[in-house]
């Protein structure tokens, strides 16, 4: 593919969630970085258009402290507020109403985790919270387990995107249940994003080759030895996986098949 053709194809290859269109298929988190400056540089290197953010009390004893918005600027990145730390639907609604007021924006990420060391989602409460948020006018991208049955229930309840975990948050173990993820991709009419569990670039490539619409990650970049370089690697990985998905891979064979013709040998 010529460079120009690649550029044209990339320009056309957009995805949409809740009526908003994006070109980058890599959403990055803003946690765990050494500082906000490194965070902003990583988000730029990743080519991200959306960043996840958390909502917390302002530190009133030090109101002059640097703020995320001074570095990762909301006019450059779309903020996707999360519900980290919420264990009930009521907590999630309260948090995201504040986020909507702070950001003037109703596209949000719902995550209701179980209070366990593995942090896997509490799907019963996630579904209940989703229904409350949809009734309150939010467009909700939902972090969920890789269970196709629950994924369908979320979609039926009005989720704007389905975001199954590849593996537990921050575990860096890659896609643990490719069969389930494939079933979710196949059945969903809203975008499917792998959210959580990506460890390195190949994990992101595999998610995109499988047909995910995008990938969301935080720790894989933030905890790399060189976060900026890893952010760039992830940008390329997501693009490579997406292009391979669009190109359509060759069929697998049981045996070898020579690439050079056998006819005309001397």
């Amino acid at each position: 593919m010529t460079d120009q053709r690649a550029t044209d194809a990339a320009d056309r290859d957009v995805w949409s969630v809740a009526g908003r269109t994006f070109r980058s298929r890599l959403i990055v988190g803003t946690g765990k970085y050494a500082d906000y400056a490194q965070n902003a540089a990583a988000a730029e290197a990743a080519g991200a258009e959306i960043v996840t953010v958390a909502l917390r009390r302002v530190n009133l004893s030090d109101s002059g402290k640097p703020m995320l918005a001074d570095f990762v600027k909301p006019d450059r990145f779309t903020y996707l507020p999360n519900t980290a730390g919420c264990y009930t639907g009521e907590d999630a609604v309260r948090t995201l109403r504040l986020a909507r007021e702070a950001g003037g924006w109703n596209l949000v990420k719902l995550e209701v985790l179980s209070d366990t060391p593995h942090l896997l989602p509490d799907m019963e409460e996630t579904l209940r919270a989703l229904k409350m948020l949809v009734a309150d006018g939010f467009e909700v991208m939902v972090y969920c387990s890789d269970d196709p049955v629950y994924a369908r229930k979320l979609e039926d309840a009005g989720a704007a995107a389905i975001m199954p975990a590849a593996a537990p948050i921050g575990s860096g173990r890659g896609i643990q249940n490719a069969l389930n993820l494939g079933l979710i991709i196949e059945q969903s009419k809203v975008p499917v994003l792998v959210d959580a569990g990506v460890g390195t670039a190949s994990d992101a490539v595999i998610a995109m080759e499988m047909g995910c619409d995008a990938v969301l990650m935080n720790t894989a970049i933030a905890e790399a030895r060189d976060p900026i370089l890893m952010a760039e690697a992830m940008k390329h990985a997501v693009i490579a996986g997406r292009q391979a998905f669009l190109a359509g891979r060759m069929a697998k064979r049981r045996y070898g098949d020579p690439s050079s013709p056998l006819a005309g040998r001397i």
Binding site: G31, V53, M67, L68, Y79, A102
Partner: peptide
Amino acid sequence: IEIVHFIGGG
């Protein structure tokens, strides 16, 4: 009164 803002998160 609660006064909140956005911070880094995943």
